[in-house]
Nucleic acid binder design. Structure first.
Lengths: 226, 226
DNA sequence: CCAAAAGTGTTCACCGTACACCCATGA
DNA sequence: TCATGGGTGTACGGTGAACACTTTTGG
């Protein structure tokens, strides 16, 4: 049986789940990192993650990591890619099944830098510290995946509360795409594409005209086309 | 350390690579299966795959399985998804990193049914036998992925030889999409989209006008947009 | 009344789609 | 000459892109 290669090696085999937890931090895309407390790369910042218990489902494991690190619930979580180069982790053969999650923007964590204490914090994606192991590759891949889904899915809604203004939604797109969008064209397009409807309420902030609030017509679902 | 869960369990942990090897069989999408020679699901048809040796890269392992089962070289191979439900395999905790591969159509295997002997063979995707374990899920996911890439990539070219006629390429699209396409519109679209150029040669088969041969302008690359 | 953000329509270019006939070949 | 598949163009509607002014509010 092909398992026999195990017998000729003392290299231990592990499976981990790592989660790229994205959110909107002010006017930037942000993600959550934790500081490693032990080797390898002790003291470096790393993605939330952990070894998958032998009887726990991969996605459950990722979800648990998500919950251990945030207060979010009902959050978007998607498997991203599995990283398994033999030499990516000095502890042995470590297979990391990477996920990414989207957390609604929350003014509470808009304080850039670190928002959760000395060994965990939110960082903006263009101001990341050097990451442990190959976590920079994981982050890059997650970011590409997220951006590529913008124009044929409603995934961006997962980065906002259940109700939001069109300006807020446009901000999310502009942050992710890194380019400004035309307000009128964006509104026409996104209302139709994402099936948005007005809630009737409005948001007033500052000495401005209040903005209408919108919601997804089918809340709880992420619509995809293609 | 979270590895400790290992100590409290005698369930063995394995990592496997499985490969969905697609090709064109006549006028159908086909894939390669092997008959399992041992439990679990002994005697059932299953995807080519195997346990990943402790020092072999995941993709190398998938590529090796591909080469063990076909004579193809320079073949498209892409990681698909990782399947890891705790109860998906009775041998223990088995994490299967699934890949899919595309093999150019080859008249030699156009004999439907089984083309490689009693315990390996090509099957058309709509005439699959009952598959071992959760391999039907893997196949379904691979098929969706392949089809979804048709209209923003040149991936379909990987199912044809280096030179091909536009009719052959249209056949591939129609087989995968399950719907007929307009010949004139398809040609205009695909020549521009996939950057095709005439080779100068032509293919003559039967009492018909010979068809021009085309090739990808940048051979060896799979162009993606978005 | 002023500053600041919300909200709104039209025009144009391009692209995807529908659609039918002639051409080249070997038998 | 005939059967078979190869090859080609045009008209139309819809969609993405460019573009500027009025409205509403709190201070």
């Amino acid at each position: 049986m092909a398992m026999s290669s195990e017998r000729y090696s003392q290299t231990p085999l592990f499976v981990r789940a790592e989660v790229v937890i994205f959110t909107i931090l002010g006017d930037r895309l942000g993600l959550l990192l934790g500081k490693r407390g032990r080797p390898p790369d002790r003291g470096r910042w790393a993605l939330p993650g952990g070894f998958v218990p032998i009887d726990e489902d991969l996605e459950s494991s990722a979800l648990r990591k998500l919950r251990e690190n945030t207060v979010a619930s009902g959050v978007y979580l998607e498997q991203l890619y599995t990283f398994g180069s033999p030499d990516r982790d000095p502890r042995g053969r470590v297979i990391s099944v990477a996920y990414y999650a989207l957390i609604p923007a929350d003014p509470a964590k808009q304080t850039s830098g670190h928002g959760q204490g000395r060994d965990a914090g939110w960082f903006t994606i263009d101001g990341l510290p050097e990451l442990a192991l190959d976590h920079a590759d994981i982050v890059a891949k997650a970011r590409r995946r997220l951006v590529s889904k913008l124009d044929y899915s409603t995934i961006a809604l997962q980065l906002l509360p259940k109700t939001f203004t069109l300006r807020e939604l446009q901000d999310v797109y502009e942050i992710l795409l890194g380019a400004p969008l035309d307000k009128r064209n964006f509104r026409k397009w996104v209302i139709a594409m994402a099936q948005l409807e007005e809630t009737g309420g409005e948001r007033r902030d500052g000495p401005h005209r209040p903005a209408k609030l919108y919601r997804h017509r089918f809340p709880g679902q992420v619509a995809f086309f293609r």
